[in-house]
Nucleic acid binder design. Structure first.
Length: 480
RNA sequence: GCUUCAUUAGCUCAGUUGGUUAGAGCGGCGGACUGUUAAUCCGUAGGUCCAAGGUUCAAGUCCUUGAUGGAGCGCCA
């Protein structure tokens, strides 16, 4: 007999049809009722064990055991569920020794579960997180596909170390204890696998631009690696990034695209993950009970998500933000650890948090940052007064997360780009292929990078990025 | 990398100014229970107090160093 998934059975009319379910025992009550879950949904199906079941079999129905149940789907006689299965036959696929099984039928801390990441999928919270993660990934592809974007796979291994997006992981097949040396006694990477030094990618943007300047609208969605010694709740050494790149688009088009995309995928999650979001909302509520009143969020998780889908993001320039911050109460009262003194300095996370969480109380798009604090490829704004040059950059800041999107209109003018690369000491020889886009049929274009795990953080209400990726990689940790 | 807090039973935590035999809830185990919903009820076992060194008549408690974990900051997505 073919097994039916619990997600399907819970929507089926209970007319006494014969069904087969397979899953894991979540609870066994009163020697009679099994709460069974197969991962297809956050909800369990209730199995009613018949009175004449072998007592030896009943003893093996324990929390975590994998079982199969054949029986009839009936309207539930008890309250709390619509349907249940009256079992006629129960098969044990995998027993569980509860004296050794780390998981327990009770609340367990996220820290403990992180150390048992191979088993944490089995908890209600993590199963919900990973179903939402899937839904968001799917929604992103659907969003871009509907708009005629092409999904480009950019390389994971790159020979370029000039992208300037952070420290890189070296890729090599050389023996670290006995590497070949050149005449000067340095490691001879000409003898390495690729004949040169190679690294894991920190961004697919530059390759994405190559595709966009032919295919028009493209996006990438792939793993990204940063060897930064970052120890925070919002950084990973291995994470997933979405990077759209759009030909003939300016900064405004870029902001509209990013805002539309975020609204689209969050709406998708609200529509398709209601059961999972309910679990996550309750989890968050429980977690916040231990916090002092003034640190609890004013809105529930789904209210927060709806708020984002129903309201426009606040758009303002870096210069306007500096004015607001300079005149803000915390700045005047010396509450900022880094006081705002003038134009030109980068904003600290306390400043971003003030703008997003206190001043505007909504997502904020900051634009037109000083050129000196941004990457070489961002387009230089025209008409700036000398010493106050800005670039067409944009950062989208979300409450509780900070920067979720970073992007810009790209510098399409060959001379301007070359000049900036020289000023910022970017080796042009290594990026000649990139410069070629500006030499031949150059066009205005824009794009951004979205941190996928940061998006999941926001949608799930989880607070540590290590809990929204299955097996997190961060300094000192690459388990599983 | 910096700052800070923590580490006591399987899990989450309490443990007074240093002073007998280190506690609780949940979980486990044994039993009862056929309309339960984090089921309930009865019984029961379970400890290298993170590690090493030091102070002291006496250290879970104080000091030093280290390890691991959390949070914040920096770097960013």
């Amino acid at each position: 007999m073919q097994r039916t998934k619990i997600s399907v059975l819970l929507r089926t009319e209970p007319t006494g049809t014969e069904v087969l379910v397979k899953g894991w025992v979540k609870a066994f009550r009163n020697n009679q009722f099994i709460a069974l879950n197969d991962g297809s949904t956050a909800n369990n199906i209730q199995i009613v064990v018949s009175e004449n079941t072998d007592p030896e079999l009943i003893k093996r129905i324990k929390f975590g055991a994998a079982i199969g149940v054949q029986g009839t789907l009936l309207e539930s006689q008890g309250k709390g569920q619509r349907v249940e299965i009256a079992a006629s036959n129960i098969t044990i696929y995998g027993d569980v020794n509860l004296e050794e099984y780390p998981l327990q039928p009770k609340k367990q801390s996220l820290e403990f579960l992180r150390e048992h990441a191979h088993l944490r999928f089995r908890t209600n919270t993590f199963a919900a997180v990973f179903r939402v993660r899937h839904a968001l990934a799917f929604a992103i592809h659907q969003f871009f596909n509907e708009r005629g974007f092409f999904y480009i796979h950019t390389p994971i291994i790159t020979a370029s170390d000039a992208e300037g997006a952070g420290e890189m992981f070296r890729v090599t097949t050389l023996d670290p204890k006995n590497p070949p040396l050149d005449e000067q006694g340095n490691v001879d990477y000409k003898q390495d696998f690729f004949g040169k030094t190679t690294n894991l990618t920190v961004s697919g943007q530059l390759e994405g631009e190559l595709a966009a300047t032919a295919l028009g609208d493209i996006y990438t969605f792939g793993p990204t690696f940063r060897a930064e010694n970052s120890n925070t709740t919002r950084h990973l050494a291995e994470f997933w990034m979405i990077e759209p790149e759009v030909a003939f688009a300016d900064l405004n088009d870029n902001m509209n695209l990013a805002e539309d995309m975020l609204r689209y995928v969050i709406t998708y999650a609200l529509e398709h993950c209601a059961d999972d979001l309910k679990i996550l909302e309750e989890r968050l509520l429980e977690e916040e009970k231990s916090k002092p009143q003034d640190q609890r969020s004013e809105m529930s998780l789904t209210e927060k998500l709806r708020f984002v889908t129903e309201n426009n993001f606040e758009r303002l320039t870096y210069t306007e933000a500096i004015d607001i911050l300079k005149n803000s109460n915390p700045n005047k009262k010396g509450k900022f650890q880094y006081p705002i003194e003038g134009w030109g300095v980068d904003l600290q996370s306390e400043h971003e948090r003030y703008l997003v969480e206190k001043h505007f109380k909504k997502p904020v798009i900051l634009t037109n940052y000083p050129a000196a604090i941004k990457a070489f490829y961002m387009r230089l704004d025209e008409g700036a007064e000398p010493g106050k040059e800005t670039v067409s950059a944009m950062d989208i800041l979300f409450p509780g997360i900070g920067e979720i999107v970073g992007g810009s209109q790209r510098e399409e003018r060959y001379d301007v780009l070359l000049q900036k690369m020289q000023a910022m000491h970017i080796p042009e020889a290594e990026l000649s292929w990139y410069l070629d886009t500006r030499r031949f049929g150059s066009c205005p274009h824009a794009g951004f990078g979205l941190g996928f795990e940061r998006l999941i953080l926001f949608v799930t209400g989880m607070t540590n990025i290590r809990d929204v990726i299955a097996f997190p990689r961060y300094p000192g940790s690459a388990e599983f």
